[in-house]
């Protein structure tokens, strides 16, 4: 009788150990591009420009019509007729729209000058440390020419030269 109870208790223990050990090693492992950790970055993936919210993955038709006519636009088809990429150029940013089938989504946003800031108040020309203090150190990759924050397929990349930001890009990489 006691033997069976002992058996029950030790199984309870094993079960407890197994289930709570689950939570620690729940971390995703980085892709092969040297992305070390991918904690939840506190960075957001949209920009406000001319009081229009432009977000990665958003429906492009609404955004483009809200922004009014672009300075210039260029669209190029993929080989094999699989979708087209269109670049819309505005005064201080460029938007790349990927259209495949019936859906058109914002695939990439490039900030050209410091007239536009990221929600974390960083802009072209800011210093590298300003980026880190504003966006935190949850970056997925850091080299001397770039800092990248990643969440799923959305990325925010700061291109650097001699410690200052020369380019800011929001990219989608599926």
């Amino acid at each position: 009788m006691k033997r069976i109870f002992a058996l029950l208790l030790c199984f309870l223990m094993i079960f407890a150990v197994v289930s709570c050990s689950k939570d620690e090693n729940e971390e995703e492992n980085g892709g092969d591009k040297g992305i070390t950790t991918s904690q939840k970055s506190s960075v957001s993936f949209y920009v406000n420009y001319k009081s229009v919210k432009i977000e990665l993955g958003a429906d492009a038709k609404a955004v483009i019509s809200a922004l009014g006519t672009a300075k210039s636009s260029l669209s190029m088809g993929n080989c094999g007729g699989l979708g087209t990429l269109t670049k819309y150029v505005y005064d201080s940013l460029e938007i790349y729209v990927l259209a495949s089938g019936s859906t058109e989504t914002v695939d990439q946003i490039t900030l050209l000058d410091d007239a536009v800031q990221t929600p974390e108040k960083v802009s072209v020309g800011s210093a590298k440390d300003a980026v880190i203090s504003a966006c935190g150190n949850g970056y997925s990759k850091m080299t001397d020419t770039s800092i990248t924050y990643t969440s799923g397929s959305k990325n925010l990349k700061f291109t650097l030269r001699d410690g200052t930001v020369t380019g800011i890009d929001y990219l989608t990489v599926s």
Binding site: M1, I4, L7, L8, F11, L12, I14, F15, V18, S19, K22
Partner: peptide, 23 residues
């Protein structure tokens, strides 16, 4: 694979309880 522990625990505890009641 990580689910096996749970179904095993359910099986073992039920087996033990049933045998006890049977006895």
């Amino acid at each position: 694979i990580e689910y096996l522990a749970f179904i095993a625990v359910t099986t073992i505890t039920s087996f033990a309880a049933a045998r006890l009641m049977g006895r």
